[in-house]
C-alpha cells in the first residue's frame, strides 16, 4: 500500500483529446410563421448557407405558407403587439391601433430596401437559382385550402412531415425551426 502511495502513476505524455471538427453540411429550415421578420430570418439563413457552399432546403408550414403564396409573399407584415422589443415602452393598446402595423411594416421594409435586401419573391428566386429547394407542408396547405397554383413557382413540392424529415438525411445536417 505504501509503495503505491509513494509512486503514483503519472503518464509521461498527457493524453491529448483530439478535437474533431464536424462542419454543418446541410440545413433544413422550417418556417412556421408569417411575420416579416420571421420569414426573412428563414430566407437569410437559407441563402447564407448556400453562399457558404452548404446544401439548404426550406419547408414552409402553417402561417409560414403566407411567404410562398403568390398573393401574400410580398405583402407580409411585422406584428406590433405582443412584442415588447417593438417600440419599447409603448403599451400594446396603442400599438394595436388601426394602421400602426401597416406603418411599422412599411418602415421596416424601407430600412430593408436601404440595405438592398431583396423582396420575398426575389429571395425565393435567388434561393432556387442557388440550388436551394423549397417545399410546402401538405397538411397546412389543405388546412388553408390552398392549391399548387396558389403558390410561387419556386415551390418544388407539397410534402408530408415524413418527406420533410427525409430531406434532412445525411451526416452534418441541422434542422432549424422558426
Amino acid at each position: 500500500m505504501k509503495d503505491i502511495m509513494e509512486a503514483p502513476a503519472v503518464l509521461e505524455t498527457p493524453v491529448q483529446l483530439k478535437k474533431e471538427k464536424y462542419p454543418v453540411k446541410k440545413v433544413l429550415i422550417i418556417c412556421s410563421k408569417g411575420k416579416l421578420e420571421d420569414v426573412y430570418a428563414a430566407l437569410v439563413m437559407t441563402n447564407g448557407a448556400l453562399m457558404e457552399g452548404m446544401e439548404a432546403k426550406m419547408f414552409f408550414t402553417f402561417f409560414g405558407l403566407e411567404a410562398i403564396t403568390k398573393k401574400h409573399a410580398n405583402h407580409l407584415h411585422t406584428g406590433t403587439t405582443g412584442n415588447p422589443a417593438m417600440m419599447p415602452g409603448v403599451p400594446d393598446m396603442i400599438k394595436g391601433l388601426p394602421g400602426l402595423e401597416t406603418l411599422a411594416s412599411y418602415m421596416m421594409k424601407r430600412e430593408m430596401d436601404k440595405l438592398e435586401i431583396p423582396s420575398v419573391t426575389e429571395f425565393l428566386e435567388i434561393i432556387e437559382a442557388s440550388g436551394g429547394e423549397i417545399y410546402a407542408c401538405k397538411l397546412a396547405v389543405e388546412m388553408f385550402h390552398l392549391k399548387k397554383e396558389d403558390l410561387v413557382p419556386e415551390v418544388k413540392g407539397i410534402i408530408t412531415v415524413g418527406d420533410m424529415y427525409a430531406l434532412a438525411e445525411g451526416e452534418g445536417t441541422q434542422i432549424i425551426f422558426i
Binding site: 441563402n47 453562399m51 438592398e116 426575389e122 435567388i126 437559382a129 442557388s130
Partner: peptide, 13 residues
C-alpha cells in the same frame, strides 16, 4: 451574390 446575378455577365445559377 444578388449583385453578381444582376451584373449581366452571369446569372446566379
Amino acid at each position: 451574390v444578388r449583385k453578381v446575378g444582376n451584373s449581366g455577365i452571369v446569372d446566379i445559377k
